[in-house]
Simulated scan of single mutants.
Amino acid sequence: MNALRRAWETERGRGSVVGLAPSAVAAQVLADDLGIEAENTAKWWDTHVRTGATFRRGQLVIVDEAWVWCRNR
């Protein structure tokens, strides 16, 4: 993952990779792996809702351990 982040940033610039994970502990593990800061997804969402902060065009968003549960009725 660190190699992917470095390659992406070489082409797109520093800060062009965002790491998100489902918990603070998972975010720290992802941050250690990527070599950049990563955030808890819920914290990022809260900031987005309150401030309107969002992703920028050209950013690579890495979501660690994303689980989607869908229930059809």
Rank of each mutant, 00 (worst) to 15 (best):
A24N: 08
G13H: 10
V49E: 11
V17S: 06
V25A: 10
G13Y: 03
G35I: 08
G19Y: 01
A21R: 00
R12N: 09
G35T: 10
Q28M: 13
E37I: 12
T51L: 15
S16T: 02
S16M: 04
R6N: 03
T54L: 11
I36K: 04
E39F: 15
L34N: 08
G15Q: 04
D46P: 02
G35L: 09
R12G: 00
I36F: 03
A27T: 06
D33A: 12
A31K: 09
D33I: 00
A31S: 15
W44N: 10
V49P: 05
V18C: 07
L20Y: 00
E11A: 08
T54K: 12
G35H: 11
G19I: 03
F55A: 11
E37S: 15
G15V: 03
R14T: 05
L34Y: 12
V29E: 14
T41S: 14
E9Q: 05
V17D: 07
D46R: 15
L20H: 02
A21G: 04
A53V: 12
E11T: 02
A38W: 00
R56N: 13
L30F: 04
A26F: 01
L30V: 06
P22Y: 02
W44P: 05
Q28A: 15
W44V: 07
A7I: 06
Q28W: 12
N40R: 06
T47F: 03
H48L: 13
T47E: 13
V17P: 01
R6S: 02
A27E: 10
R50C: 10
A21W: 00
V17K: 00
I36D: 07
A21S: 04
V25T: 01
A38S: 13
R12Q: 08
R50N: 14
W8Y: 10
E37N: 12
A31Y: 09
T51K: 12
R56V: 09
A38H: 01
G58P: 01
V17N: 02
V25Y: 04
G13L: 04
G52P: 00
G52R: 09
L30D: 01
V25K: 04
A31T: 06
